[in-house]
């Protein structure tokens, strides 16, 4: 954050993306969604690949929308920093909370973690 002081008078410069390019991006997004759908239909065949695959595709769509449609690729780096901070924090906390619950060995309802460290009755 130390060099946040850079004072530049860059007035909003519009991204140079053309309508044609936007349409292509829209097409790409649709195709990825279709691929995801097909993947989920073949979940048995794909096995362990399925979930990481779906998450990666979803991440690709996320990045495309954020970078191209929300213009982060062209806009001030500060926006990217601020949004990324919130997004990464949210992701970390989500993972932490879900893992803490999965680890909870005392849950009498949901069952414990695989390899439950504490045996109980």
């Amino acid at each position: 954050m130390a060099d946040m002081n850079a004072v530049h008078d860059a007035h909003d410069e519009h991204p140079t993306t053309t309508i044609r390019e936007y349409l292509i991006i829209g097409l790409v997004l649709s195709v990825i969604t279709a691929v995801e759908l097909v993947m989920s239909l073949y979940e048995d065949e794909l096995g362990v690949v399925l979930i990481p695959g779906l998450l990666i595709f979803s991440a690709i769509k996320f990045v495309i929308v954020v970078a191209m449609f929300m213009h982060l690729k062209f806009d001030s780096i500060r926006f990217t920093q601020i949004f990324a901070f919130g997004f990464v924090l949210a992701t970390c906390l989500l993972i932490a909370v879900v893992v803490l619950f999965a680890y909870d060995a005392t849950d009498a309802i949901g069952g414990g973690f695989i390899g439950d460290p504490i045996e109980h009755h």
Binding site: M1, L89, L100, Y103, D104, A105, P117, I118
Partner: peptide, 25 residues
């Protein structure tokens, strides 16, 4: 000050030591 702010998001469960959080957490 800034690092207190950032670290402040990573310590919440110390309020829950007695709830059966589990040893490692």
């Amino acid at each position: 000050g800034a690092s207190i702010g950032v670290l402040g998001f990573g310590v919440w469960a110390h309020h829950m030591f007695t709830t059966g959080l589990g040893t490692v957490p």
